[in-house]
Structures are given as C-alpha cells and as structure tokens.
C-alpha cells in the first residue's frame, strides 16, 4: 500500500526519512569498498602504496593487471579452478537431483528413514581430521578428485531441490505417466528433469559459486602447485605479502612486482571475481528464488 507522503502525519514523515538515511548509509558502506578496490586496481602502484587512492583511480594505469597476467600461477590457478568448478558442479547436480527426485516420491517405502539418513549429516559431522583420513585411505590425496568427491552432495541443497520438486510438479502427472506405462526412471528423465530447469539453475549457482570460492579442501589435500585452484594462489599472494619469487624468472618483472605489491592485489581480487560477476545477472534472477524455496519447510 502506498500512502501519500504529503498527507501523512509528521511522525511518519520523520520515520520514513530516518529509514531512508539508515539504508542509504548502509548502501554506501557496502558499495564504497567495492568501488575503492576497482579504482585501486586501475591506479599506479606508487599511488596505491602511498595511499592516495580515495574514490577514483589515481594515475590510471594497467600495471597491476599486466603483472597479474604475466604471472604463470594465476593462469594455472584460473584453469584449475574452472575445471574443478565445472566437473564438481556437474557431479553435484547429478547426485542432488536424482536423490531429490527419489525423496520427493511419497510412495517410496522408507522415505522418512532415508531422508533422516541425509539430513542428520547437516547437524553432526566427523570433523576435518577423520574426513582427511577417509580421503587419504581412498588414495585421493594430491589428486583433483580430492576437491570434488568429498563435497559431492550438499544436503541443504538436496532439501531445497526436494521441496521444489514436491511443490511444483503436480502428483497427477505421476499418475498419468504410470497409467501410460512409464517407469520410475522414465518419469524422472522425461517429466521431472524438464520441469526442474529453474531449480537446476539455482543449484548450478549455489554449487558453482561454492566450488569457485572454496580453498580449504584444496589446502588440505593438494600439494602440487600444478593442481592448485586459484584461491590457493590468491591466498599465497594476498596473505603472504608477495608473489613467490621462484616462479618469476624475469628480474625486471620481479622489480615491478616489488614496487606494485598493493596494486597487484587489487587487480587480482578483481580478476578472481570476474567469473562470478559474469553470472551475476543470472544470480539475481535465480538466487533469490532459491533462498525462498529453501525457506519453505519441506
């Protein structure tokens, strides 16, 4: 309901102005660091080091990006991260959607028990040490599979998908399909999957962002730099205050890195965000939807 601002009582006017001020303040607090990072990444190394960047780029230059793109590790990391994100998400989707379909079938004997089998893991887990032992026992240490298989299925996402299938696909379809002689697997492939495109999009976003951003499993399980995801190189560069000199052979480049440490970090932050930001229009469309489905108790 939209009241007219002019005719409303004075106390309401004050209230609305306060609301506007508080929200705008918060909006600026969130937005400002984002703009600052973007501006700093396009400034010169010396301007960033001396703290002269405040809002817009100072001495605009691309030196940060040049150094980032001349660092082989960034390319290796980018490639590995894309690969892990793609394969990991594909596996996640297959596992999640099949399990969600089965759990959504009310005529599945033992459905309650199987659901509990999944959901219990949301609230109790073995912890990192014993998980590490399982991964080690399976011989997955230091292989790309170590960052893909252990997170094969996320139970929260499973519940979201199950709730969606239950609520959006009418039960009459199952009856009609069964009468026409459709098997359970046939019904899944021919009816459920085509009608679940929206939830699959949500799952792709959830899992994709998760894989792109995750670092801890990689840090635990991977030792060879050639299979590091981007986040591990980011951690090295952002936390350890320098790019590993042993990977940079060109002395001129080394000197430039020393001078431009700050701007490189900002450029790196921007580069690492590019894939997620490319997805942002889709995120806007589906992400909110996903959160809302998740909020309905299944």
């Amino acid at each position: 309901m939209r009241e007219n601002f002019k005719t409303m009582p004075k106390s309401d006017k004050v209230f609305y102005v306060l609301v506007l001020l508080v929200l705008t303040a918060f909006f600026i607090i969130v937005l400002y660091p984002c703009i600052y990072v973007l501006s700093a990444s396009f400034s010169s190394g010396t301007a960033v080091q001396s703290g002269r960047v405040v809002l817009w780029p100072v001495d605009p230059s691309l030196e940060g990006y040049k150094t980032v793109f001349n660092t082989p590790n960034v390319w290796i990391g980018f490639r590995n991260s894309l690969l892990y994100t793609f394969c990991g998400t594909a596996l996640n989707i297959v596992l999640t959607i099949t399990a969600a379909y089965c759990l959504s079938r009310r005529d599945l004997p033992g459905r309650g028990g199987i659901t509990l089998f999944f959901t219990f893991t949301m609230f109790f887990n073995g912890g990192i040490i014993t998980t590490y032992m399982v991964v080690r026992a399976l011989g997955l240490l230091n292989t790309p599979l170590a960052v893909i298989l252990p997170v094969g299925i996320n139970v929260y996402n499973l519940i979201v998908a199950k709730t969606f299938i239950q609520n959006s696909i009418p039960g009459e379809l199952l009856e009609a399909a069964t009468i026409d002689g459709c098997s359970d697997i046939g019904y899944f492939i021919k009816i459920v999957l085509p009608l679940s495109k929206a939830i699959i999009a949500v799952l792709v976003l959830y899992y994709g962002v998760y894989h792109w951003n995750s670092y801890f499993n990689a840090m635990l399980y991977l030792h060879d730099k050639s299979i590091y995801p981007l986040t591990l190189f980011l951690r090295e560069i952002l936390m350890a205050d320098q790019i590993d000199p042993s990977t940079v052979t060109d002395p001129e480049l080394q000197a430039r890195i020393a001078e431009a440490a700050g701007v490189i970090k900002y450029a790196l932050i921007v580069v690492s965000m590019v894939p997620v930001m490319l997805l942002y229009p889709f995120i806007q469309k589906y992400f909110v939807k996903g959160v809302m489905i998740g909020s309905i108790k299944g």
Partner: peptide
C-alpha cells in the same frame, strides 16, 4: 559472493 580468501585479503 566474495570468497573467504579474497574477503580476508580485502
């Protein structure tokens, strides 16, 4: 959507 690593770096 900013990863933990980047967030802490930031």
């Amino acid at each position: 959507f900013i990863s933990t690593v980047v967030m802490v770096g930031l």
